[in-house]
Structures are given as structure tokens and as C-alpha cells.
Simulated scan of single mutants.
Amino acid sequence: MTTGVFIDGAAGTTGLEIAARLAGRSEFSLITLADDRRKDAQARAEALNDADVVILCLPDDAAREAVALIANDRTRVIDASTAHRVAEGWTYGFPEVIGRDTVAAAKRIANPGCYPTGFIALVAPLVRAGLLPVAWPYTCHAVSGYSGGGKALIERFAREPGIAWRGYALEFGHKHVPEMQAYAHLALAPLFAPAVVAAYRGMVVEVPLALSIIPGAPDPALLRDALRAFYAGSPVVSVADDLPEGGEIVLREGAPAWDGLRLHVIASADGSQARLVAELDNLGKGASGAAVQSLNLISGLPETAGLVL
């Protein structure tokens, strides 16, 4: 018996990437709408209610409207928007952090944001273990490929090929911050400084730590060991042993899709400073790959089926 899946917003970047990961998989049958019916409310409502699983690849308001159109208690939802990430009754779709069984049992799953995926993966296990404080003013510097901004930003980079780096959220209050704080179990909102570069995909998220002034902060090796223990056995998340090859991390234009997540703890020689760094694909574990991982779990399938690892 196949699982009927409707991707609402299938023509967008995330939707297209999800469909690509499901292509050729006999476990799923895609429910599709013709182009002239994609915005027809009745047609969408029928598809939403016919599906076993709906994956929403929509703006926030449209995602809320789509959920309201579901008139049964059978259809399960994976929402790739920001709309429900800290909403009551929704499960955060980060199985390595939230728990695979919790995600597998969920009826409503909120896909994590791309930047929060890196930040939470680095910080949540260390705060949970008591190795880093709950009440600390963490900073998160991050850079992403421009595809994370959707069609509008992709088109802008095509129109303005001279853009090399685009810093944004300079007014603070970025919509990713609430989930970063909530799922990293922090008393204070992190200072979040995102940017976009002239690469289509890829992402690096960094949390710098002045360990010498953090009360009770451990040796960086203990931070690395704790992350390695937390993600032991994960087929998706890995923890690097040492410095990246060549002593640098590079985002490349034209990089292939990747659904993994690689973490680093990079420390100064005297252990007084450390840089927690996450490498991921903003369209992979940061979006479409994460949605497919959750889809696999709620369907009782191996979590890595169809993923690019």
C-alpha cells in the first residue's frame, strides 16, 4: 500500500527538491494538480483531504490557510514554513534532537529552519548536558546559498550578478530566532547575524565561544566528545575529529545536493576560545531533506530512504 503525498507549493524551490527525492520511490504516490488548478481553493482542499501526508511549501499565511482546509483527522502534515515551528500541538521535525519516535508518531510536524538546524544541532545537546549555560548571550554567525531566499532572491541574484555577499536581518527580530531559543533551551535570545553569498546552495552556521569567561565552561575536547556521544549512530549527523581539511570551510557554486549535517568544535591552542561550526545544505537538511526524513519516519520507513548522503 502506497502513501499518498500532496506537496502544496510543489512549484517552489523546496517543493521541487522534495519531489526529486521522492521520484521513483514506490512507497509514495504523488497527488498533483494541473498548473491551472494549483491556486483553485476547491481543488487544493480536495487534494489536502485526499492525501495521507501533506507537505506544505508555502509562505506562512498560506500554510496556516492550508491547514485550516484539512477537514479530517487522518491527514498528517509536514509544514516547511515558519508558521508552526513554535506553535502548540506541533512537533518540531528534528528527529536527532526531538527524538525519532516522537517525530514518527506526530500528526503535525513543523520542519526546522535551515539556520536553526545548524544552531540547534550545535548548542542544544551541550546545554542539555550542562556543559554550556542556559543563560548566556550566544551569538550565531551564518552564511547561506541564495536559494534559501526562494524564487525572489534567486531572481535577484540572476539580475544582479555583482552581489557577492548580502547581510540582512540588520534590524534584529529575525523569524528564526524564536525556534533557535526554544529548542536550544536558552533563557536569552541569541544574537543572530545571517548573510547570503553568491552560491546557489550550502550553508555554514557558527557559534563562537569565549570559553575563558563562560562560568564552568569545559575543555573544548569535552564539548566535541559530548556532541559525538549525542549523535552516535546517526546516519545523517556527523562530528568531525579535528580541523576541516586544509584548515578551511568552503562553499562552492554548483555544489551538489546533500542531506547530511557535519559539526565541528574548533578550539584555540590554549582552549580559551572555541568555534562551534555546522556545515549543511540549506536545501537539504535545512529544508527538503529534513522534510523527507520526517516523511520516512511517519511512514515507518528507514529515515535515510531517498536522501543524498
Rank of each mutant, 00 (worst) to 15 (best):
M1F: 11
M1D: 13
D8Y: 14
D8F: 14
G12Q: 03
T13E: 13
G15W: 00
L16P: 00
E17K: 04
R21P: 02
A23T: 04
R25N: 02
S26F: 06
F28G: 02
F28S: 03
D36Y: 06
R38E: 03
R38N: 02
R38I: 03
K39L: 13
D40Y: 08
D40E: 13
D50S: 11
V53H: 01
V54A: 14
V54M: 08
I55C: 02
L56P: 06
L56V: 07
L58I: 10
L58K: 08
E65A: 15
V67C: 14
V67R: 12
L69Y: 06
L69R: 13
I70K: 11
T75K: 10
R76N: 07
V77L: 09
D79F: 08
S81V: 12
R85Y: 09
V86F: 10
V86C: 15
T91N: 10
Y92R: 06
R100V: 11
V103K: 01
A104G: 00
A105D: 12
K107Q: 13
G113S: 07
G113V: 04
G118V: 14
I120K: 08
I120P: 09
A121H: 11
L122M: 09
P125L: 13
V127M: 05
T139M: 08
A142C: 13
G145F: 04
Y146G: 03
G150C: 04
G150E: 00
K151R: 14
A152L: 15
I154W: 05
P161A: 12
G162H: 13
I163V: 14
I163A: 08
Y168D: 12
Y168H: 14
A169N: 06
Q181C: 09
A182K: 15
Y183L: 07
P190E: 03
P190G: 01
A199M: 05
R201N: 04
V205W: 08
E206F: 09
P208T: 09
P208R: 01
A210L: 15
A221T: 13
L223N: 02
L223S: 07
A226R: 04
F230E: 10
Y231Q: 09
Y231H: 09
A232V: 05
G233S: 08
G233L: 11
V236H: 01
V239P: 08
P244Q: 11
G247I: 07
L251C: 12
L251I: 15
G254V: 06
A255M: 11
I266C: 08
A267M: 01
D270H: 03
V277K: 03
V277I: 15
V277N: 01
A278W: 01
D281C: 01
A290M: 07
Q293Y: 09
S299L: 06
L301S: 02
E303P: 04
T304Y: 00
A305H: 05
G306P: 01
